[in-house]
């Protein structure tokens, strides 16, 4: 249970929630040489239903593969934000999309509202890379895996021919995290 970090990605089906979880887990397990488990839950719909992915990262063994006391929560819909924020631990990190999530629940955590979908459209020209921007912002803000590991994991997972597109998205996420951290300082 040493250094157990719990991350939950949440939103709706089709937003790339589960792929985000897989990429983060691969970054931790393969490129940062830690232990990682990724699990998911989803509805029977191909698109539009609730979607949730969880990643547990640890230096030691991971027995229970599900998150119960969350360190980092990404919510790409208001419904997901309202539903899962109570599972955030004190001092945890909440990241939401600023267009989709208008009301951030009260609580003892750090909340970041980021225009993830707008950045995807403006900086990459494709809304579909929103999950990669979110990953970049999440890792930039929390350091849960190294940036290099995340970059390698993204490159090994995305379809051939989309590498540049995804790297642009990832860097847009990193930059947004840096901007927010400068504003905080």
């Amino acid at each position: 249970m040493a250094n157990r970090i719990e991350v939950r990605f949440s939103g709706s089906g089709g937003q790339g929630i589960i792929l985000s979880g897989v990429i983060l887990a691969e970054a931790a397990a393969i490129y940062d040489n830690k232990n990682a488990v990724q699990s998911q839950s989803y509805g029977p719909e191909a698109r539009g239903g609730a979607s949730k992915a969880e990643v547990i990262i640890s230096d030691g063994d991971i027995d229970y593969p599900k998150a119960t006391n969350i360190d980092i929560l990404l919510a790409l819909t208001q419904v997901a934000c309202d539903k899962y924020t109570p599972d955030l631990k004190e001092g945890g990190v909440l990241i939401v999309d600023s267009q989709e999530v208008l009301a951030i629940p009260e609580g003892n955590f750090r909340a970041y509202s980021i225009p993830i979908f707008r950045l995807a459209q403006e900086k990459v020209g494709k809304r579909i890379v929103a999950n990669i921007i979110a990953l970049g912002a999440l890792v930039g803000l929390t350091g849960v895996v190294s940036r290099k590991a995340l970059e390698e994991a993204v490159l090994s997972r995305v379809p051939r021919g989309t590498e540049d597109l995804n790297l642009t998205a990832l860097r847009a996420g990193f930059e947004e995290a840096e901007r927010l951290q400068r504003a905080e300082a």
Binding site: N35, A36, Q38
Partner: peptide
Amino acid sequence: VLAHMREK
């Protein structure tokens, strides 16, 4: 859970 879980 086991079927869909990814693990190192």
